[in-house]
Design a protein around this nucleic acid. Sequence first.
DNA 1: CGCAATTAAATTGTACGCAAGTGAATTTTG
DNA 2: CAAAATTCACTTGCGTACAATTTAATTGCG
Lengths: 164, 164
Amino acid sequence: MTKAQTTKTATKTATRTMKIPEEEKRLERQLCFAVYSTAHAFTRAYKPILDKVGLTYPQYLVMLVLWEKAALPVKTIGEQLDLDSGTLSPLLKRLEQSGLIVRTRDPRDERQVIVTLTQEGDAMRSQVDDIMGEIGQAIGCTLEEMADLREKLQGLRGNLTETR
Amino acid sequence: MTKAQTTKTATKTATRTMKIPEEEKRLERQLCFAVYSTAHAFTRAYKPILDKVGLTYPQYLVMLVLWEKAALPVKTIGEQLDLDSGTLSPLLKRLEQSGLIVRTRDPRDERQVIVTLTQEGDAMRSQVDDIMGEIGQAIGCTLEEMADLREKLQGLRGNLTETR
DNA sequence: CGCAATTAAATTGTACGCAAGTGAATTTTG
DNA sequence: CAAAATTCACTTGCGTACAATTTAATTGCG
């Protein structure tokens, strides 16, 4: 799908061959930068909160996954977070050193490593209300606005990913 | 929404002391993760395009800043991108090695390093239409939707940042 | 069955991001 | 005006991200 869009999808691909006005090329007009810088702003907003429980932000995301289901193979965690083993292997090693998870080979398939919450890791779940409450404060918008924005981003992420 | 909102600002802070339903704690319901994973999706979408011109995604953002104004101190670039010198110093060193910029001490204030586009760096500007065109394709939404989403993210970023 | 292809995780190397600390230049202040 | 405080960029150390490679285990296929 490339050339002359005849009908309804045409409006969706307007940028392709158009000459882009200089104003639209400015950093602050870039959607990609808005996403990029907001992601950093989130990480910074989480930092003082997560410091109190000794987690980095990506580690917190892994814990969110494990609080949904307490034992998962590395591969599944990677699929949910869209991270590969090159990122997860050292991260999980640090979570293990922190005593929050254990890693064991799956006896059914020795290639797989099953990540399991320890008691300590499970207990940390009780702090999630506080963490999300504090962040909710910082986000400063209504639940409806949050849900709307989240859904739009999920759609965008889908578009960006679909042609991989 | 949720509870008894007393005043007009209450709607904006509803999450604070509320008990959060389990469903809302799932990874996929987190706005922070939507932003995080979309940012990664953008980086991946840009990669094959930027590989052709030999830039990483953060380097491309620096070039966007410099294409707006061809000579700037490191500090100003950092302010626009919200990055500190610990990130920018090595990145700029690589851009200099690529021949796209030069770095010179400001004679008026020897603490400052002025980053200036080389001819080569300036010439690369001509490729920005192609880059943005290709990404525009991948984004797959209308210009209106893009602008709306960008503005909402800028607002969110502002909220997250204002209490720093 | 036996070997090639595939899969899962770890490892290596490069490039961010950021906190903390260093050193040089400038500004502020007593 | 001189000492103290601040500013700017750089460096160091740690933790992601991700491509590419490696190793071990499993699956598929003839």
